[in-house]
C-alpha cells in the first residue's frame, strides 16, 4: 500500500519500512512487516512511523515523547544501528540501506523485548541503582539550601559532557559485552558512575568504586569503542571508562580483588594507547611485580592529572610499540603466575 505523507514539496520518494513485529500475546516469534509510504524530503523516521501508525497500521507500537532528541524515548535500530528515530532523516537513511529503498527498523538489543519496537528499560534503572548513580551529598542536611558548594569551571568541564546523557540506551544496545552478558554494568551506567565519581560534592566515591570493580563491572569492558561510536549525544564514553580504571588502580592498587585480570586489562589499555608507554618503562629495570606495586599508582596519578586523553583515532601508537607489546604479553604471564601463587598461599 502506498500512502502519501505530505503532498507538496520538491521531492518525494517511495520508501519501504521493514519493521520488526512481536506481540507476546499472540506471536510465538518475531517477524517483519513491510510498510511502503511516499516520504518527502525532511521527514524523520519517527514521523514516518507515526504516519504508519495513524494511517496504515494502528497496532504498530513504539515509544516517542519529545520528538526533539531530548527525552531518549525513541531509541531503536535503524538500518542496523542503534539511534534515535526522531533525529534520523529518512532520506539520509535511504543511502545506508542494505537493500535499496528498504529501511529496516528493529528494537534495541540486550534489553528484554516487550512489544514491537518497545524494550524494557527497568534493567538499566536497576543498574543505575546498584552502582549508586547519584550524588550522595556531603552537605549536612541542616545546611541544605543555605549555601552553595564552590565549584570550578575545570571541575564542571570534567562532567559537562557526561551529563548530556539522555539514557536512550543506544550504547547499551551496541555494547559487545552486554550481548554476551546482560549483567554487565553497561556503558551508560559507567558514564554516569564516572560523572558522580568526579563530582566533589559526592561523599561515596570509594563505595561506588568498590562496586564498579566487582564482577560484571568496569574491568569487563573490551574497549571495542562501539558505545562511543553510537552515542547519540557524541559523548566520549571511553574516556569515562578509562578514568574509572585509572582511578581504581590508583585508589585500590593492582592487586585488588581479581588483581591479575585488572592488570591485564590495564595493560591492554596501555597497549592500545601507545602514548602511555613511558609510564611503564621502569618495568624493564625493576621487574614487573615491583613496578605494579610501587610505581603504577604514581604513574596513574600523572595520567589522571592530564585528564582528557585525545579521542581514539587521534591516539597514535608510540614508536616501537611492537617491542612493548611483546613485553606486555610477557608481563601478563608474570602477573598471572604471581596471582596464582598468591592464591595457593
Amino acid at each position: 500500500m502506498t500512502e502519501t505523507i505530505d503532498q507538496h514539496q520538491e521531492g518525494k520518494r517511495d520508501v519501504t519500512f521493514r519493521v520488526f513485529r512481536f506481540n507476546p500475546q499472540v506471536d510465538s516469534k518475531p517477524y517483519f512487516d513491510d510498510y511502503t509510504i511516499s516520504a518527502e524530503r525532511g521527514i524523520t523516521v519517527l514521523r514516518s512511523l507515526n504516519y504508519i501508525k495513524e494511517h496504515v497500521d494502528a497496532t504498530l507500537s513504539f515509544r516517542a515523547f519529545c520528538q526533539a532528541g531530548i527525552c531518549g524515548s525513541c531509541g531503536m535500530r535503524v538500518n542496523g544501528i542503534s539511534k534515535l528515530a526522531c533525529t534520523s532523516q529518512v532520506w539520509d537513511e535511504l543511502d545506508k540501506c542494505r537493500e535499496p529503498g528498504i529501511i529496516r527498523v528493529e528494537p534495541l538489543r540486550s534489553l528484554p523485548m516487550i512489544k514491537d519496537l518497545i524494550v524494557d528499560m527497568d534493567p538499566l534503572v536497576d543498574k543505575m541503582t546498584r552502582y549508586a548513580n547519584w550524588v550522595d551529598s556531603t552537605m549536612p542536611l541542616a545546611e541544605m539550601g543555605k549555601k552553595e558548594f564552590l565549584i570550578s569551571e575545570e571541575e564542571f568541564q570534567q562532567y559537562d559532557k557526561a551529563t548530556d546523557c539522555i539514557l536512550c540506551a543506544s550504547c547499551v544496545s551496541e555494547c559487545s559485552i552486554l550481548r554476551a552478558n546482560t549483567e554487565y554494568v553497561s556503558p551508560a551506567v559507567l558514564l554516569k558512575s564516572y560523572r558522580m565519581n568526579v563530582d566533589s560534592r559526592d561523599g561515596i566515591h570509594d563505595l561506588r568504586l568498590a562496586e564498579l570493580v566487582k564482577d560484571h563491572g568496569v574491568w569487563d569492558c573490551t574497549h571495542c569503542y562501539r558505545c562511543q561510536e553510537s552515542c547519540v549525544k557524541s559523548i566520549p564514553i571511553m574516556e569515562a571508562i578509562h578514568a574509572i580504571r585509572e582511578d581504581a588502580l590508583e585508589k585500590r592498587g593492582p592487586r585488588d580483588t581479581s588483581g591479575a585480570k585488572h592488570a591485564e586489562a590495564f595493560m591492554e589499555d596501555i597497549e592500545k594507547k601507545g602514548k602511555l608507554v613511558e609510564a611503564t618503562l621502569p618495568i624493564r629495570t625493576n621487574g614487573v611485580v615491583w613496578t605494579l606495586t610501587n610505581l603504577l599508582p604514581m604513574a596513574m596519578k600523572m595520567i589522571v592529572k592530564r585528564r582528557t586523553p585525545p579521542p581514539p583515532p587521534l591516539v597514535k601508537s608510540a614508536k616501537g610499540i611492537k617491542i612493548f607489546r611483546a613485553m606486555f604479553r610477557e608481563m601478563t604471564e608474570h602477573v598471572k603466575q604471581d596471582h596464582l601463587k598468591s592464591h595457593k598461599k
Binding site: V135, S137, M144, K147, E148, I151, T163, D199
Partner: peptide, 15 residues
C-alpha cells in the same frame, strides 16, 4: 533556597 538545594544534591550548574 531551592536553587541552592538543587546545587547541594548534584545539579551541574554552569559556574
Amino acid at each position: 533556597k531551592i536553587i541552592r538545594e538543587l546545587e547541594n544534591i548534584g545539579t551541574p550548574w554552569s559556574r
